[in-house]
Design a protein around this nucleic acid. Structure first.
Length: 263
DNA sequence: ATGGTAGCTGGGCTA
């Protein structure tokens, strides 16, 4: 069984101890991290290596930044989403992991652009970024291997994935153009792991720091694990772990995980 | 109508 998870930590320096604690509690084989907010050399690798994880890191000064922690050996790490050589934002890291006794799996840690306000150049960047993701994933799916695209997509897929959808119609996370861009990716043949296991609404993964959103459970579901057919056929379970959102000095996101039996 | 919080940074941007 392979357990894989994703967590936007909103600064790895601030969340180093929480991250280590969650790894001890949940012991995933793979954890994809987003919003490191640190440069690559400053990533606290030793903490995670001591817990038995290999680290692939794509940092950036101040913003963004993604990583893949893996108990399996990491091969072929690629730190860029193809399609725009001028894009300097660290939002995509892909690696092949050698799973002992099973097929190799390809994993991407994704931090899609927020895109607010909309419309604006930032929203255009978001739509362009999803268009690049669509093209790239189309190529990856031709490999017919277990592929897991895990991360913060900054997309609310359905009205039941936000506490008050009417208030979010104009927001870049819920605007119809953004949802369509996301759906064009999933319609290539990807399975939303959490939805495949339980399609009920209200399974939020993010709660704003402001206005007591966490205490009132006013959340969004924007962190997703998308699986290729070769990964989805082994899907056993998936869930949201709310505990870390309730810890002291939390990230505004909480981990999402899935368990796969791959053969 | 506004501001409410957090993080990086050293003023303002991003979320």
């Amino acid at each position: 069984m392979v357990k894989i998870a994703t967590w936007n930590v909103n600064s790895i320096k601030q969340r180093e101890l929480a991250c280590a604690e969650w790894l001890r509690q949940a012991s995933p084989d793979v954890l994809c991290l987003q919003e490191l907010k640190c440069q690559t050399p400053a990533f606290p690798k030793a903490v995670f290596e001591d817990l038995g994880y290999n680290c692939a890191v794509l940092g950036q000064k101040g913003f963004n930044g993604v990583a893949i922690l893996s108990k399996f050996p990491i091969d072929e790490a690629i730190g860029a989403l193809p399609g725009d050589a001028t894009d300097e934002q660290s939002r995509y890291l892909e690696a092949v992991l050698s799973v002992p006794g099973g097929p190799a799996i390809r994993v991407a840690s994704i931090y899609a652009p927020n895109g607010n306000p909309a419309p604006s150049p930032k929203f255009d960047y978001k739509l362009g970024w999803f268009s690049r993701l669509e093209s790239h994933v189309k190529g990856l799916l031709a490999f017919e291997e277990p592929l897991i695209l895990a991360g913060d997509y900054n997309i609310i897929p359905r009205p039941t994935d936000v506490y008050n959808p009417a208030n979010w119609i104009e927001d870049a996370l819920f605007r119809i153009e953004a949802r369509r861009a996301f759906r064009r990716v999933t319609h290539l043949g990807l399975t939303d792991a959490l939805m495949a296991c339980n399609s009920a609404g209200g399974q939020y993964t993010f709660w704003d720091y402001q206005a007591g959103a966490w205490q009132k459970d006013l959340g969004l579901r924007i962190d997703h694990l998308l699986l290729s057919a070769d990964a989805a056929k082994g899907l056993v379970a998936s869930g949201v772990d709310r505990k870390p959102r309730g810890w002291d000095k939390p990230s505004d996101h909480t981990p999402v995980w899935a368990e796969l039996r791959l053969t």
